[in-house]
Design a protein around this nucleic acid. Structure first.
Length: 345
DNA sequence: GCGACAG
DNA sequence: ATCTTGTCGC
């Protein structure tokens, strides 16, 4: 792993986890291994990627197959033998293609399912490798005790997409003023897979930070659109970013990835001095406090955001920073980054 | 009926 | 995230 002091200085391809081959292409090569006359399932492909729970992501990847037939996505069916979808409503087309290959359906299920099921994928299980890396990083992160720290400059990060084309944005706030904006564009080589978000978006974020560094700017606090340590392996995108850069990071997610939320209380009762700014509830996972569900204005807003430190900042200081720069449901730096990233031309 | 998983 | 009509609620 690159040293913390040199964030953004090196080629991201020198980071071990980013040497993983283009996962889109890797996946399509897996699909090409299914021989004519055989079928496989979304779940077996997910297992071949290295995470059996990523079956949904497999469905999304097949949906985006750029080379139908060449990449025989029609040979991928559901675990119960049902055909599953094909190019939208064209399940009939899928059935016809399979019939031509000698695969037949009976009562809506593939006949001799077990007999023609292909499961011997040649694979290195890339997601397993990444999961192990996340586990390692998550274990290393220690969240400091409250320091009553105020952050003069806060950087909001976000990305928008057109398929694999990404537009990443960083907006730096000082007090309530925008003092710097950075945009980077590029192509991502990792799909969205829940719990692996950082492998898709971190390369873009690192380029934003590098741009800022070249301008002599180092933010005091970074806010990511996604969790900090509130993650099954303690390694959400904010935590991973902290690990790579050493910058204080607080993660803000719009929906719950994991954990259970307790009772909402006035923030003052948490010892977080944000009277009138909102309410919060602890989020626990595996018996550990990993973050807070936070509602900025309970009168107006119903859904909480999920705030968790990535590292370099305490739970309370991170929460207070988010509350302090919130005017609507999401903190202003993230809203601004979201708007900037969405401005394609 | 289970599980329901950031962007 | 992105694609998007009609619907719900302050």
């Amino acid at each position: 792993m690159i040293p913390k002091e040199s964030y953004g200085c090196g080629n991201i391809n020198t980071i071990p986890s980013f040497q993983i081959p283009d996962l889109y292409e890797y996946f399509y090569e897996l699909v090409k291994q299914i021989p004519e006359g055989s079928i496989s399932t979304y779940k077996f492909l997910a297992c071949a990627l290295g995470d059996c729970r990523a079956a949904r992501a497999v469905g999304q990847l097949l949906k985006g197959n750029p080379r139908p037939i060449v990449v025989p996505c029609h040979r991928v069916i559901m675990s119960d033998g049902a055909p599953g979808g094909y190019a939208g409503p064209h399940t009939e087309k899928k059935i016809a293609l399979l019939r031509k290959e000698g695969v037949y359906f009976q009562d809506g299920r593939v006949r001799d399912f077990e007999g023609i099921l292909f499961r011997d994928f040649e694979t290195t299980y890339p997601l397993r490798t990444l999961r192990e890396e996340q586990q390692r990083i998550g274990q290393e992160i220690v969240i400091p005790e409250e320091q009553h720290r105020d952050f003069k400059t806060v950087l909001g990060l976000d990305i928008s997409y057109h398929d694999r084309e990404a537009r990443g944005a960083g907006v730096l706030f000082e007090e309530d003023e925008v003092i710097e904006e950075v945009v980077v564009e590029g192509r991502v080589d990792f799909p969205y897979i829940s719990t692996y978000l950082s492998y898709r978006e971190l390369p873009v974020y690192l380029r934003v930070l590098e741009q800022l560094k070249q301008k002599g700017i180092v933010p005091e606090l970074v806010m990511t659109d996604g969790n900090g340590i509130l993650h099954p392996r303690g390694c959400g995108i904010g935590a991973h970013l902290y690990h790579l850069t050493g910058l204080p990071v607080v993660g803000v997610a719009k929906s719950r990835l994991c954990g259970t939320t307790g009772e909402f209380r006035e923030m003052l009762e948490f010892g977080v001095d944000c009277t009138g700014k909102g309410i919060a509830a602890e989020v626990h996972y595996d018996g550990n406090l990993l973050g807070h569900a936070f509602i900025y204005n309970a009168k107006k807003v119903k859904n909480p955001v999920f705030v968790s430190p990535g590292g370099g900042v305490s739970f309370q200081d991170g929460l207070r920073a988010v509350a302090g720069c919130s005017r609507f449901r999401l903190p202003e730096p993230i809203r601004a980054a979201h708007r900037l990233a969405s401005r394609w031309e």
